[in-house]
Design a binder for these strands. Sequence first.
DNA 1: CCGTATCCGCGAGGATACTG
DNA 2: CAGTATCCTCGCGGATACGG
Lengths: 126, 126
Amino acid sequence: MKRDYDIYSDLCPARAVLDRIADKWALLIMDRLALGPTRFNVLKRDVSGISQKVLSQTLKLLERDGLVSRKAYPTVPVTVEYALTPLGENLSMAVAAFAHWAESNMDAIRKAQLAYDRRERSSAQA
Amino acid sequence: MKRDYDIYSDLCPARAVLDRIADKWALLIMDRLALGPTRFNVLKRDVSGISQKVLSQTLKLLERDGLVSRKAYPTVPVTVEYALTPLGENLSMAVAAFAHWAESNMDAIRKAQLAYDRRERSSAQA
DNA sequence: CCGTATCCGCGAGGATACTG
DNA sequence: CAGTATCCTCGCGGATACGG
């Protein structure tokens, strides 16, 4: 058993990493990159709703943690491709399972929400 | 193939769910609850760094989405146990794989960070 | 095309105090 | 023990403009 790192511990470096990857945008980007190397503006288009700033920011952080690689081609204008590193590929299975879980279970979730809101409503009676 | 829901789509309800579960605190709470039913203050102690407010908030959201159940026992003082629902159990595998990934790969991550910071430093030379 | 720089609103979430 | 209520700050992230 590894006890070197513990995400439950506030000051553990693994907690900081978790904070970075347990993020809606980071997950969507990684999941999208799992399909193959992708250019900046394609990512921006596919991950709908993300802003240029946040996309750039998130990519940099993922690159720093060694999950994503950046490769620039000296075309005019410049072409840049982002891709998962081997380390990123290693995580991509978990990312996909997690990210797409909501899609597969929306019906159950909706049902739960309705039941919850109904209970709230009735308990709010004066 | 299910095309009913798509997390890449900005306005899809599945995206909203992703936003809720792709959260450091939500992940840690669910992962902890996978060990078994747990009382509020035990959760607060085990998930170090979380505040009372955020713990309460997050539990409510998870309960609304049908991932967590809340059971109050009429003891004095009251005892409350949180647990994963069947739907939550269903997600817990993905949560565990994802949440603990950082622990297992910190060495590679650290190496990548050092390399990245070194490159940044050298490219910042005037 | 691929970003960086700047401004700024707004809400997440920490601290603290109080209640059933 | 298990929360709710309130205040307040701090930085996330959207919008916009500009540079390589």
